[in-house]
Write a protein that binds this DNA or RNA. Structure first.
Length: 268
DNA sequence: CGGGGCTCCTGTGCGC
DNA sequence: TGCGCACAGGAGCCCC
């Protein structure tokens, strides 16, 4: 699903197409998204507001509204935010703007979430979010996060309370490129390896943004188009195929309950 | 603190 | 071809 590069691509698309637009109509189409008892307040907090800022923290998308409120989304596994003149097809939420443009929140598995925050409202997630992996995390912080934990390195990279934005795709890809096995306890990763991992993780995230994200199934940008960063993948969902570096058969495993693919020869 | 398992959903793909 | 099961990019919560 959308990880940092995909959410950043959508953020940029929305900024490009919706900056300054005023909300004229809000339709909640899924009671699971906003409970019926909260819908009146939710809609009232949005109507008449203009979109002034488009921010991202980790995998959260934060739309800043005139008057100081915010509209926040987390897309989870299958969420999409699609801008069009007239949306067709299923969606959980529809927002119409003063120029007739529509923003549709589509979400096949319905894990996605939305929040309307009043000025001064606290961060909605129950868990505090760590520094954004691309914009708020320096090398020393990264190394210290890795070295101070006994948890295996892949789940560490994906722990949003430690660093925000990295999910299963980019964790696996970075570990391959840094030649570190996903199961290595953080503590046992050397300083040199951790620094390499920091460098390649950032390169991979940046490059994925340049390619407008990875589309393996559901991900689409705000214009409904696929990204192309999946063409850069070396291991994600490639178990059994030859390693692109040494041709050894890539191995699939479960790490922290999640699928993981790695090269048993290149990744130590 | 760490790890495993379950949960929220729907769809796909594989083996038999 | 049909069926059942495992699994899918996330992440909170419970239990040990």
């Amino acid at each position: 699903m959308p990880e940092l590069p995909e959410v950043e691509t959508i953020r940029r698309d929305l900024e490009e197409s919706l900056l300054g637009r005023k909300i004229e109509e809000v339709q909640v189409l899924d009671a699971r998204l906003v409970a019926p008892s909260r819908q009146t307040v939710f809609i009232h907090e949005l109507l008449g507001r203009a979109l002034e800022r488009f921010d991202r923290r980790g995998k959260y998308l934060i739309l800043g509204l005139s008057g100081g409120g915010r509209l926040m989304f987390h897309l989870r596994m299958t969420g999409q935010l699609i801008v069009s003149k007239k949306h067709t097809g299923p969606s959980r939420l529809l927002v119409r703007f003063d120029d007739g443009t529509q923003l549709a929140f589509c979400d096949q598995r319905r894990f996605g979430e939305v929040w309307s925050l009043k000025p001064g409202d606290p961060w909605p997630s129950r868990v505090p979010l760590g520094p954004d992996a691309l914009t708020e995390l320096d090398k020393e912080q990264f190394v210290s996060i890795i070295k101070s934990r006994t948890t295996r390195i892949q789940p560490l990279l994906m722990d949003q309370s430690l660093m925000a934005g990295v999910g299963n795709i980019y964790a696996q890809e970075a570990l391959f490129k840094a030649a570190v096995r996903p199961t290595r306890p953080g503590q046992n990763v050397t300083k040199k390896e951790a620094e390499r991992l920091y460098r390649v993780l950032r390169e991979i995230l940046q490059k994925a943004i340049t390619h407008r994200g990875s589309t393996s199934r559901n991900y689409r940008d705000a214009y409904g188009e696929s990204g192309s960063a999946q063409t850069l993948h070396s291991v994600y969902r490639k178990g059994g195929l030859p390693c692109r570096r040494c041709s050894t058969r890539l191995r699939s495993a479960r790490v922290g309950g999640r699928g993981s693919v790695f090269c048993p020869r290149c990744q130590k």
